[in-house]
Computed example of a mutant assay.
Amino acid sequence: MDILGWVLVILLFAVGMAGAIYLILPGALAIYGAFFVYGLFFSFSEFGIWFWLIQTLIVIVLFIADYAVSAWGVKRFGGSRASIIGSMIGLIIGPFVIPAFGLIIGPFAGAVIGEMIAGTNLERSLKVGLGSVVGLFTSVVVKFILQAIMIVLFILWLVL
């Protein structure tokens, strides 16, 4: 049973880290779930209130940062509310419509279309679309770092 427990924990960590890039995967929630799997298979005794508070805070920051950083990229490049909404819609729909490149093209196209609907010219709309891609990549980096911190804290909590 120990081997199964560790396999599930590692699998959830892998899914979580992949979720930083492939937004359809449950990222931080998979990592958070790995802590519960560990507790069920082994013991929750290693985890005190501080472990759960810190990990929960990181998950909350991840959810807020995910949307805030993406929106920041659009805003930083002069985007309007319409382009932020378009970018978010493109981020959700893009990977399904264009599996290989939809993660990048979706937010870009969504921001450009949203900005054009708002009445902005094509040149500025394309600039805002670029901002959505910059925001997306920044968001991926932030998520990857924070999720890695969650895993490192888990390991440190077990070892120390």
Rank of each mutant, 00 (worst) to 15 (best):
V74Q: 04
S87F: 05
L40W: 13
I105F: 14
T120C: 01
A148W: 08
V15I: 15
P26E: 04
I93G: 01
P95C: 11
I145M: 14
L62P: 00
N121Y: 09
I145E: 11
F42C: 02
G27P: 04
W50T: 12
V74T: 08
I60Y: 10
G102Y: 07
P95A: 11
S45D: 14
A65I: 00
V74N: 05
F108L: 15
L91F: 14
M150S: 12
Y32K: 00
Y22I: 11
G110P: 08
T120D: 09
S43C: 02
V142E: 06
I84A: 04
A148I: 11
F108Q: 10
I149K: 01
E123W: 08
A100P: 01
F96N: 08
L122Q: 07
G131W: 06
R76M: 06
L11M: 13
W72G: 01
I92Q: 01
I10N: 10
L29V: 12
G33L: 04
N121T: 12
M1E: 13
L29N: 10
I89F: 12
M116L: 15
G94F: 09
I31M: 01
W52S: 05
K143M: 12
G5C: 11
D66E: 15
S45K: 14
E46R: 13
I149Y: 07
P95Q: 06
F77C: 01
F35P: 05
A30P: 09
F35V: 11
G39K: 04
L11W: 04
P107V: 02
E46T: 12
L136N: 09
I98N: 03
G106I: 03
I117R: 05
L62N: 07
A68S: 05
G86W: 03
S132G: 07
F51A: 05
M1R: 06
G129W: 02
A71H: 07
K143P: 02
V7Y: 14
G27N: 02
V15N: 03
I3E: 14
K143Y: 10
Y32H: 00
L160V: 12
L146R: 03
G16Q: 05
I145A: 14
F13D: 08
A148G: 15
G5A: 11
L103W: 13
L40E: 08
P99V: 10
L8W: 10
L29H: 12
I92A: 14
Y67D: 00
I84K: 08
M116R: 14
L160N: 12
A14D: 07
S125N: 09
L130A: 13
G106K: 08
I104T: 12
I155C: 06
M150T: 04
F144C: 09
F13Y: 13
G5V: 06
A14F: 13
V9D: 13
Y38D: 07
F47W: 03
L136Y: 13
T138L: 14
A148S: 15
I89G: 05
A20S: 15
I98D: 08
L4H: 10
